[in-house]
Write a protein that binds this DNA or RNA. Structure first.
Ligand SMILES: [Mn+2]
Ligand SMILES: [Mn+2]
Ligand SMILES: [Mn+2]
Ligand SMILES: [Mn+2]
Lengths: 222, 222
DNA sequence: ATAATATGTTAGATGACTCTAATATTTTAA
DNA sequence: TTAAAATATTAGAGTCATCTAACATATTAT
């Protein structure tokens, strides 16, 4: 295991490569909120340790070893989040920041026990898959709310955003993982969407919010 | 809050001052397993931050501010240990090392929740008192097993040693916090002690082990 | 093909924390 | 009261992780 800083670099490289394919030094700098030369020297160090392969202007790629480390950290992060919600009774909007710290705890006993208590869970409180202890990740097929036709009914499976303000927003709207929603109206003008919710209420979501909500279609046009 | 390193210095200074009164740079170096000059410069830094008062050859003293920080860390450590035992089902011999990491987690929510779940506990799994959120600590009067006369019966209230090997040793002997024991024999020659235990077994403890076990006398000589 | 833009590097410095080697001061004991 | 022992300090250097300022290279758009 590397230092805390190293772990955060590895994790960010993994996240960016999932999101955008190529990972540039400059992108990483923005994500980690450090300056370019800092990233430049750290990437060199990671390359020396065979955690990444780096070709200037071509991007940074995690090696197998690096990927394995990233997945181990993500596993710990997501197990921690679920534990905080299920066992400790915290809200899904307040666990990410704590998990950012707990993911660096070095104790197989601790995480083995969490995994056991939660009965080898497959998803975190935000619907993100939890890699198993070998780093294997179950990748669901994902459809965003913004891609659904009017009239369709779907179940919310995940949200791709950990930020408290976003989750507070969903809480205020009364939306949760597992909720069933029907698309009532898609606005051409601003991309906003009106949903019919199990609570019987109609909910309006902006494009910006809807695109971060992932669903599985359960009922096709009636 | 200071850095992780700073927190560990503060905690060690507190522990040493409880144990031996005066805390010398040299003692601290031994405890933290770093060299003298490292401690020397860190102590200067802590003094600049008004966390300690330092007079060479006279010892290091925590200021009120430093004491408060130490107690906050100790509180987190002990809450974590108890949580790991009571909620997560780990053994008292394996929680210290994990708590050494969890004590640095910065989240009042996390610790507030642990405190609540455990119902504002007063003692950790080793019988050590847990400071309250104001840093107030309930200091029990302590009698060591080695100070009991033959024939007395007492209850084990605490052990002053977190090391796994020591606690493994007690586990092997079948001794736990709360157990009632009667002093059968005190050996003059080597200071060892023979106990009658609730399990009906006789248990022999060396002086080295017995002196780390604290008790409350429940039955005086019959 | 040149200019503009995106992307990356080098040099040199800083702060936190650590080390070794050499030296200094204070306390205590003979 | 001098020597020995305990305690502490300074000087100088190294690693990790960061920064600013200046410069360099590659990609792309005109
Ligand atoms: Mn998260
Ligand atoms: Mn999550
Ligand atoms: Mn402990
Ligand atoms: Mn303890």
């Amino acid at each position: 295991m590397g230092s805390l800083t190293e772990e955060n670099y590895i994790k960010s490289i993994y996240a960016l490569s999932e999101a955008t394919g190529e990972v540039y030094v400059s992108e990483l700098a923005k994500k980690l909120d450090v300056k370019l030369p800092s990233v430049n020297s750290m990437v060199k160090r990671l390359a020396t340790k065979k955690l990444v392969a780096y070709a200037p202007y071509k991007g940074i790629k995690l090696t197998e070893k690096g990927k394995k480390e990233a997945l181990a950290i993500i596993r710990k992060h997501r197990l921690a989040e679920l534990f905080l919600v299920k066992v400790m009774g915290l809200g899904w909007e307040e666990v990410h920041d704590i998990a950012e710290q707990l993911e660096h705890v070095n104790s197989s006993r601790f995480y083995e026990r969490i995994d056991e208590l939660l009965n080898r869970p497959k998803f975190d409180p935000h619907g993100e898959p939890i890699p198993d202890s070998n780093g294997k990740i179950y990748n669901q097929q994902r459809t965003s709310l913004i891609d659904l036709e009017e009239g369709l009914t779907a179940t919310i499976t995940a949200v791709t955003e950990d930020e408290k303000s976003f989750l507070d927003h969903l809480n205020a709207k009364g939306l949760q993982i597992g909720d069933s929603v029907t698309i009532m109206k898609r606005e051409m003008f601003d991309g906003s969407i009106t949903l019919q919710h199990k609570s019987k209420k109609e909910i309006l979501l902006t494009h910006q919010v809807a695109e971060r909500i992932w669903v599985e279609v359960t009922v096709t046009r009636s």
